[in-house]
Design a protein around this nucleic acid. Structure first.
Lengths: 343, 343
DNA sequence: CAAACATACTAAAACGTTTTAGTAAAAAAA
DNA sequence: TTTTTTTACTAAAACGTTTTAGTATGTTTG
């Protein structure tokens, strides 16, 4: 049978003292509240002996803090996000916070639904990879003084904490690297999205191409078509039309996945002849043939910064004063796929 | 400034009725509790107009239910587990449950720590991929009447709900498939673990090899060496010693990862000449050259079963009566890497 | 026409904490 | 000696719900 866990009241009764005293001692306020050393020790010892654990629900109700953070990403099964989750998990637990991970699929309705599900209040803070159209929801969270940090992307003009990477620079460098390796017809395969991260990646590419007097070749696939699994068709058609490409830059890891599938289907040798770079690193890229060059995001640094920004927010009364925008540098991991090919 | 959310009391005051009545109406007990249609409507309308959301913390405190499930895996950044997480997330949310994902790294101390962190009580149920030595902890959870389901592996002789796959059969079939494709010196690369899933995979392999009058070649790497990143060294040494191997069966996806790295380093052609099968599918296997045959677990089915077993447990007073052990079939996804090679 | 029942509602306790605003006694200061 | 301060502790309210055990009417029933 389910035996009830011991409460602070049980301890108080057992030791014939008040609940208040027990609470003070357990919260380390013994000194401050003038509880005698002997009694303090007695309480501590007894609590330990029965393995007392406070009921966090009751604590939450009383204090208004749940020690729960929401980490909302696009898709937790995506390698990039699950890596982030794994790292953030450790950092958060170390600070006494539990984390609820969820996936919004970059869909506004789903994102809003999830945020209301968490009830605006029963969670101490949000880390959100925002879908395109939930700017207003975010504004409301901030207005309600809930700690929020945007991750991976942000809204132009919205004053909000965020941790992102320098997408434009990353993309520029990757493109320039291809150019340095003698590739001339470099295409950029991306989503039809005006979200900040995609915008940055596109512009970095365009700038680099232009700076070198080359022609841009851009494919932008509507996001909902990708969801429907039609990404490959778009890519296939694009390659069909652009026969003279000598390099491909994929702007996300799932596009790289689809793109490589298409290339493999089309012609086994294509993959070796083309210059290839993918955004977001993947362990598999190390063992692919050729090994694949990628733009790696600084995962640990991202998570560290997230917590660094989050912690003070959780303490503060007023969240709005100090909006920080953290922009991190990426790493271009150069592997075989982007090096000049000797024919 | 942080404005307080409306409470049931505010509603009661506004409508000049009792808190009890409001609660009854909001919980759909109006009819049963003889609240008049008019008043019922009035309350409902008002609640909606102010967008009332109950404080779930208070609800939890009162009812003892948190609507929170813990989904503890080995490593949430591992493709297999993050895929499961993504699927389970949807299923759980649909039923009104939120999910806390965490990673125990197959480490007993970490697993125990996490379980106590969740305080045994403030969570409605646990789904756990158990590390080798937490059998006692699990027994205690069951004794305390907390719903638990073991996932992916179980403890021999411990009566507990579990959802696993038929590892032995899966492994047997995969090995037999290699044998059918003319491979004769098939090695099995695994962890030195007597956990049920690994045991099953090893035995399936051994049985198939024996049934065909072949020699087994087994490498079992200590788990802590893998954690330390020494997996590759072990594999490298093993390949060095066993020059006559013509096929490799990797018992987990991270071993496949390491193994392929080693093979690639050693000799680019090796990968194409050897027969290869990996446990757990990965999207990347589709685009590898050769495409890689894998044993795919039925992810959706696993998650569906998990929830199917969990839901009744969450309702019940006594959890111990109906321990279910669900064993699911795997899918051998045959790709190029395991087909007979023409020399 | 009293007893039984149905209807429409509510007061108050309870869940397990934290915290405010105390009290009583001992010690120090005047 | 009286007043003030310090020490050691506690009663009770509060957080926002749910639920038990009512009450006060009105309506049937025998």
């Amino acid at each position: 049978m389910k035996k009830k866990p011991v409460s602070i009241r049980n301890i108080a009764e057992e030791l014939k003292i008040s609940v208040t005293t027990v609470s003070f001692v357990l919260n380390g306020k013994a000194k401050e509240k003038h509880i005698s050393k002997e009694l303090t020790k007695k309480v501590l010892d007894y609590a330990k002996s029965i393995n007392y654990r406070p009921n966090q629900i009751a604590q939450s109700l009383r204090t208004g803090k749940s020690k729960l953070l929401v980490f909302m990403v696009e898709d937790i099964s995506n390698n990039f996000f699950s890596q982030l989750a794994r790292i953030f998990e450790d950092i958060a637990y170390e600070k006494g916070y539990k984390v609820i991970f969820c996936s919004n699929e970059n869909d506004d309705e789903k994102a809003n639904e999830l945020i209301t599900l968490f009830n605006f209040r029963q969670v101490d803070g949000f880390i959100i990879v925002p879908s395109p159209g939930i700017r207003e929801t975010i504004e409301n969270l901030i207005k309600d003084n809930i700690p929020v940090i945007l991750l991976d992307r942000f809204y132009e003009g919205l004053d909000c904490n965020s941790v992102v990477i320098d997408n434009e620079q990353a993309s520029y460098d990757a493109t320039q690297h291809l150019i340095d390796n003698k590739f001339k017809n470099i295409c950029f395969i991306s989503t039809a999205s005006d979200q900040s991260q995609m915008y940055g990646r596109l512009h970095g590419y365009e700038k680099a191409v232009e700076a070198n007097g080359l022609e841009p070749h851009v494919l932008q696939i509507p996001f909902n078509e990708i969801i429907k699994g039609k990404g490959k068709e778009y890519i296939r058609a694009f390659f069909q039309k652009n026969k003279d490409l000598d390099a491909v830059f994929f702007s996300t890891n799932y596009l790289a996945q689809s793109g490589l599938e298409v290339l493999k289907e089309t012609d086994q040798n294509l993959i070796k002849d083309l210059g290839l770079i993918a955004f977001d690193d993947n362990d598999m890229f190390k063992i692919y043939d050729p090994t694949i060059t990628s733009v790696a995001q600084p995962l640990v640094e991202i998570c560290t910064k997230l917590m660094e920004v989050m912690l003070p927010l959780l303490k503060k009364k007023d969240v709005s004063e100090t909006h920080q925008k953290i922009v991190l540098k990426t790493d271009l991991i150069i592997r075989e796929s982007s090096l000049a090919k000797q024919k």
